[in-house]
Nucleic acid binder design. Structure first.
Lengths: 244, 244
DNA sequence: GGGTGAGGTGTACGGCGTACACCTTCGATA
DNA sequence: TATCGAAGGTGTACGCCGTACACCTCACCC
């Protein structure tokens, strides 16, 4: 409808006449990230994304091969947001800092863990990230052997998230039903109730009511890094342990 | 077609005339597990499962509310395969043994990790499992506080798997292309190549060629358990660390 | 000025989960 | 023994999904 002359000649070339902002892989990926951020990953269908961009669904396939590649691209966008750590630090601090930066990026995109775990190929930028993490271990003096296993031990935590399997069920709204359920739960799962009701002073009624995710994450990360450090200091090699 | 008298009166009641084995929640769940085991989780659609059972798709909905509940049930079937550890052991051995039993169960059902991670509610048997894990920590003398964080730190590893994000890409078949790619990879990701080519003596050509998953799992599990044990011996509490 | 290739469109196909109305069967009850 | 109601199974249909394929348009270049 309203395509005025004003939209013309917007760049160095000086000859482009744009009816609408032209699609590009970049634009598609960014729109996908925004859509997933705002509407949830379940709302990210090729059709929805196309609509968001004011374009026919099939137009997207001129810029991404298929939905899998779209998801790969979205992961790349997120990983590109991870900051490299300040240089010249202790390897443990460096790794810690970088992983926590990854975590900050992931928290901005709640869909990312799930999508990352579903990938079957690592995009190049993802390998770059892993490469620099490994580099920090190696430059810190850890053996390639120990570094290898440390990376495996980090697992998904190197992306800044811990898959929280079976998230806490929300307690029922009705206070009576809540009391009944609490009694039943306490009887069948006494240990769960024991550990769930310490620390969460505000909300002691439901298992795991108020965990501090950030604290849990750093706790686990530090246990791992401290453990690896200790093994390093002991001169650990996998040979001595392989069949014990 | 061929429903003979031979199929009648097959049980205690003595009056049942069966045209085919009757459906039941139990049968549906077990068939779903078998189908997922054999054909992969992607082949598990309500339609496929119904066909496998010789039944119309909608018949399944008389036994499970919807596909989510079907998946919940399948997880329950797998978790039921986990053996409780021998009693009277050190807490660390007990936990270790039980987690490794969980791992054995999971390895029999390769689809399980993915399905477990997609659950939003824990079925009762899953809570039973967590409850008994927690019980072992507590009976071992660990504080509820430390146990709580230890469980979080275990994360998905308490189910016997480590989500291997970005699995190793398969090297190209063509040996020439393989050599070229290896050079490129070594240039861009030197650290990855460094840690990938140690230890895997048979297959040193591709990153991460031949990792021993079981070893990696136990390594990480032991780092965590040892770390927790050390904190326990030091009388660790979360209070001292919460804002350091 | 005609050809070319990149980018966008429209239609259609086969799959999915499942709502809904329906039919059959069978045990419990009047 | 007649009736009824519930439990279990069926068939159809709807609205999603990813995407193959043929087509159109139009800027650009020889």
């Amino acid at each position: 409808m309203s395509r005025s002359r004003n939209e013309t000649s917007n760049g160095a070339g000086g000859t482009a006449v744009l009816r609408r902002a032209p699609l590009s892989r970049e634009r598609v990926l960014r729109a996908a990230v925004v859509l997933a951020d705002e509407a949830g990953i379940d709302s990210l269908s090729m059709r929805n994304l196309a609509q968001e961009l004011g374009v026919a669904p099939m137009a997207l396939y001129k810029h991404v091969a298929n939905k899998e590649e779209l998801l790969d691209g979205m992961v790349s966008v997120v990983v590109a947001e991870i900051d490299p750590p300040a240089t010249g630090r202790d390897w443990k601090c460096g790794v810690r800092e970088m992983v926590l930066s990854a975590r900050r990026a992931l928290l901005r995109h709640p869909w990312a863990p799930q999508v990352i775990e579903s990938r079957t190929q690592a995009p190049p930028i993802v390998l770059d990230y892993m490469n620099s993490l490994i580099g920090m271990f190696l430059e810190g003096g850890l053996s390639a052997d120990l570094t290898h296993h440390a990376m495996h031990a980090l697992g998904s935590r190197m992306w800044g998230f811990t898959q929280e399997v079976f998230p806490t069920p929300a307690p029922p709204a009705d206070p009576d039903a809540q009391a009944v359920m609490f009694r039943e739960v306490a009887q069948r799962y006494p240990h769960i109730v024991t550990i769930a009701t310490i620390g969460s002073h505000d909300e002691g009624t439901a298992p795991g009511g108020g965990c501090d995710d950030q604290f849990e994450f750093e706790f686990a990360l530090d246990v791992l890094l401290d453990g690896v450090e200790r093994l390093h200091q002991k001169g650990w090699t996998s040979a001595g342990r392989k069949h014990s």
